[in-house]
């Protein structure tokens, strides 16, 4: 939609041009969210596209995703066959809207938006990703994906800070993954997302939950697991930790999250009907 309050459109070609930052400025990456709602507080758009940060780099040490890399780039690239974990990222794209959105929307933009139902955050947490933040007027730093999102619509980024790139280590990309998601309708805003990542060599299973909580949550187990371990892990959380809103109650979110976690394990052949062996978190 038209953003009636916008007075200035900046299109820097060099990061060094951006010395000032005002509270009523906003980064424009894909624009697919920014232009989807009224933004009455924003007066200036800073378009990132001309900075040349759309890299999708495939290297021996892993995958690097630039600030303006689109979902389509991620979906269509060729990856080393051993990177089984890419499937989780591809599913994160497929589960998010139509292919026309993929053509423009960025992965970094989706992370910065920090919607609880964001499709990428749980997958990147599961794959040990790290993010490079360029703070406004400060030195760039890296942090783990799990430390980035602080709550619903809340990240570590301060005004003017930028998520410059995402790195997914090759070791984690070798993990097997399963991605499960459920909405009220066939599509829309998820009520629960479950990502399971499995490392056969160590028999480690990492489970990450999205959409049920304000930010992703993770657990680690040794495979195989049984249903009761999931139930126990979720029952250990206070119900108030789960999101309750007009779309679904906390009790229901907990239920479907449990179901999806079990299905993700089953999908990877990791579900056992035996008693739990051990749990570590």
């Amino acid at each position: 939609m038209d953003l009636h309050s916008i007075e200035t459109y900046l299109r820097p070609t060099d990061w060094a041009e951006l010395t000032a930052w005002q509270p009523d400025w906003a980064w424009l990456a894909g624009g697919t969210w920014l232009f989807s709602e009224p933004q009455p507080q924003v007066r200036t758009l800073v378009d990132l596209q001309a900075l040349g940060w759309s890299e999708l780099a495939i290297a021996a040490d892993g995958l690097t995703i630039g600030a303006t890399c689109t979902m389509r780039q991620l979906l269509q690239a060729d990856y080393p066959a051993v990177w089984l974990g890419i499937e989780a990222l591809r599913n994160a794209v497929r589960e998010l809207a139509s292919f026309k959105i993929h053509n423009e929307a960025t992965i970094a933009g989706n992370l910065c938006l920090a919607l609880p139902a964001g499709t990428f955050a749980p997958a990147l947490v599961a794959l040990d990703a790290r993010y490079e933040v360029w703070p406004h007027g400060g030195e760039p730093y890296w942090l783990p994906a799990s430390a980035f999102q602080l709550g619903a619509r809340q990240t570590v980024l301060q005004p003017g800070d930028l998520l410059r790139r995402i790195h997914v280590p090759a070791a984690a990309l070798a993990w097997q993954t399963s991605y499960q998601r459920l909405c009220v309708a066939t599509a829309g805003i998820a009520l629960a997302i479950a990502v399971a990542a499995y490392h056969p060599a160590t028999q480690t299973v990492r489970l990450v939950a999205g959409a049920s909580f304000p930010q992703p949550r993770q657990w680690e187990f040794f495979a195989p697991l049984c249903r009761e371990q999931i139930t126990t892990a979720l029952a250990a959380l206070p119900l108030t930790d789960f999101i309750a809103d007009a779309a679904a109650s906390a009790v229901y979110r907990r239920q479907v999250l449990g179901v999806l976690l079990v299905r993700s394990l089953s999908d990877l052949g990791l579900l056992s009907e035996f008693e739990p062996i051990s749990i570590h978190s």
């Binding site: 459109y9 920014l34 232009f35 053509n103």
Partner: peptide, 22 residues
């Protein structure tokens, strides 16, 4: 808001929702 597709156009030959495209 980029949900219905009635404003779809092609930009450099690729389909986009033009309502959410600056």
């Amino acid at each position: 808001s980029g949900d219905c597709g009635a404003c779809t156009v092609w930009v450099d030959g690729e389909a986009v929702h033009s309502c959410i495209y600056p």
